[in-house]
Every structure is written in structure tokens, then in C-alpha cells.
């Protein structure tokens, strides 16, 4: 009986204030979409870090037969050269930073390169004399790459030592900047949403002041009077946050997966629909809690005056 009464009052309020409710829905929709984008970008950064850092963080490139750069003298690195480097990495001072190492001999590197360039004429031109072996080093903490680089750069047969994070850092900092921008926009929009909800509830209360006066006079409890208004705000925000969750799913499915996935290849590098679905409850939670708080403050203040 009372639940029906409360819900009835809430829906009546939603109907009477339709245009304001629509604006609340839209503002929460947009602001929560930005919140979701920020969260997903952070997820994407984490995903990429995990993907790349799980592979080699430092690559020790050995000389190929034609190489003259680095320590190379137009002679392929010998097994002894590789063994010397591996011995150095096994020394205690370096080894404690290293999780594991893995040597890819030239033939394997060549095979990988040919696979990578399968659709490209370059693939056909590659032969083993262009290719040196690569010793992949995985570190416990990728930021200790300098230790490895310094310790083996001067060794004979080493063409170069790459800290692969250097290639990734610009991408990560770009993604971080985008994420920060999304959070900034989201914060502003959320402030707007909270104020809009408060205004809408005050307006709704004003349009029902006659009922409110009678309800207070006959002894309706404060909770019964306030709940329909809080529900009104919560329902509007709920619609907005569900829309935002849907928008995120669409972004992930059609833009990230199809567009970016087409360019970068899938396989654990990119976030997926599952991540978007994980973010949805967070968005709905933020939307509902903020709406409930601002609506309840607004109606309590209105009734006090």
C-alpha cells in the first residue's frame, strides 16, 4: 500500500517534470560516459602494460652478418658472444633484477619477422644474414632496465640493447592524458548533474507544495514525504547511467574492437566487452548514489524552509 503510494507519487513527479527529468537523464548520461571512458582508458593502459611487460622488457640485439652499427664488425655474433652476455646476466649483481631470459636464435627471429611481414614484399627479401639473434630479458621491475643496458652494451657481438618501454611510454602518457581529460570533463559534468538534480527536485516539490502541505499537516512521516522525491532523482539518474553503460559497450564493441582491433590486432592487447560490463555497475552505482544524495539534501532543505 505505502510502497504503491510512494512509487505512484514518484512517477507522478517524473511525469509532471518531464522536461527537467530528460535533462537530468542526458546530463548524467554524458557525465557518466566520460567517467566510464576514463576508467576504461586506465584499464586499457593496464592491459597494454601487462601485455608488453609480460613479454621482454629489454631486448639484447646481437649482430647480423652485415651489421656495422654498435659493436658489430660485419660479422654475425658467435655462440661465444651470446654465452658471454648470458654469463654476465647470470652474475649476482645483475641476476637479482632478472626474472628470466630467453634467447631467440637468428632462424627463429627470421621466422617471426617473415610471419609479421607476411603480406609485405619485404618478407620475401629477408634472409638470415640480415638478422641477428635476440636475447629477451624479463625484469621483475621494468624500471631497472638501465642495469641490464649498462652491464652488457659494451660486449662484443652486441648490436644494441633496447628498453622496449621507451617505445611504449609515449603511448601510455598519451592514454594517461586522455584519461585525465576525461576525468576532468566527467567531474565538471557530474557537478552539473548534481546541481541539476537538486534543482529538479526543488521544482518538483514546489509543483506539489499543496500535497506536501497537507501531508505534513495530517502527520505523514518525513520519510514518506521525502522518499518519492529521492526516488524521482534516482530513477532519472538510473536511466542516465544505464544509457552511459550502453554507450560504453557500443564504444568498446564497435570502435575499440572493430576499428582499433583491426589495426593493432586483438589477442589480449585491447580491452573487451567484458571490461565495459565490469564498469557498468560502477557507473550505475555512482549515478544512483550521487542522485540520492543530492535529491535528499535538496528535498530536506526545501521542506525545512
Amino acid at each position: 500500500m505505502r510502497l504503491g503510494l510512494i512509487l505512484g507519487e514518484a512517477f507522478q513527479g517524473l511525469r509532471r517534470n518531464a522536461s527537467m527529468v530528460v535533462s537530468v537523464v542526458l546530463v548524467t548520461f554524458i557525465s557518466l560516459t566520460f567517467v566510464g571512458v576514463a576508467i576504461l582508458l586506465q584499464g586499457q593502459i593496464g592491459q597494454m602494460k601487462a601485455y608488453w611487460y609480460d613479454r621482454a622488457q629489454v631486448a639484447i640485439n646481437f649482430c647480423s652478418a652485415i651489421d656495422q652499427t654498435g659493436n658489430c664488425l660485419q660479422a654475425a655474433a658467435t655462440d661465444a658472444d651470446v654465452a658471454a652476455v648470458e654469463a654476465k646476466l647470470a652474475e649476482e649483481s645483475v641476476a637479482r633484477y632478472i626474472e628470466r631470459t630467453e634467447y631467440d636464435p637468428p632462424a627463429q627471429v627470421l621466422a617471426q619477422a617473415q610471419e609479421f611481414y607476411a603480406d609485405n614484399p619485404i618478407g620475401g627479401l629477408l634472409t638470415e644474414e640480415f638478422i641477428g639473434g635476440i636475447l629477451n630479458v624479463t625484469l621483475y621491475d621494468p624500471s631497472n632496465a638501465d642495469v641490464v643496458i649498462e652491464s652488457v652494451s659494451a660486449f662484443a657481438g652486441v648490436q644494441s640493447v633496447d628498453d622496449r618501454r621507451e617505445y611504449l611510454e609515449p603511448i601510455f602518457s598519451m592514454l594517461n592524458a586522455a584519461s585525465a581529460a576525461a576525468i576532468g570533463v566527467a567531474a565538471l559534468m557530474l557537478v552539473a548533474a548534481v546541481l541539476l538534480i537538486a534543482t529538479t527536485i526543488r521544482l518538483s516539490a514546489f509543483s506539489r507544495r499543496r500535497e506536501l502541505g497537507i501531508m505534513r499537516l495530517v502527520g505523514a512521516s518525513n520519510r514518506l514525504i521525502e522518499t518519492p522525491f529521492i526516488l524521482e532523482g534516482v530513477i532519472a539518474a538510473l536511466i542516465g547511467s544505464v544509457l552511459a553503460s550502453g554507450a560504453l559497450a557500443v564504444i568498446v564493441e564497435f570502435w575499440v574492437k572493430r576499428e582499433l582491433g583491426g589495426v593493432l590486432g586483438g589477442g589480449g592487447l585491447l580491452i573487451g566487452l567484458g571490461d565495459a560490463l565490469l564498469v557498468a555497475p560502477i557507473l550505475i552505482g555512482i549515478g544512483v548514489v550521487l542522485a540520492a544524495l543530492s535529491a535528499s539534501v535538496a528535498i530536506k532543505r526545501y521542506l525545512k524552509v
Binding site: 505505502r2 499543496r210 500535497e211 497537507i214 495530517v218
Partner: peptide
């Protein structure tokens, strides 16, 4: 101070509804 959009019956019943009568 009657509610203009409620019937006579509903105006009187409203009082009892909001205080939670069956």
C-alpha cells in the same frame, strides 16, 4: 485546502494513505 486533482473520496482517503492505514 483540498487537492484539486483528487475526488472527494480520494481527498479524504489521502490522509489515511499517507499515515499508512490499511
Amino acid at each position: 485546502r483540498l487537492l484539486p486533482n483528487k475526488s472527494v473520496y480520494d481527498n479524504v482517503a489521502f490522509t489515511l494513505q499517507v499515515i499508512g492505514k490499511s
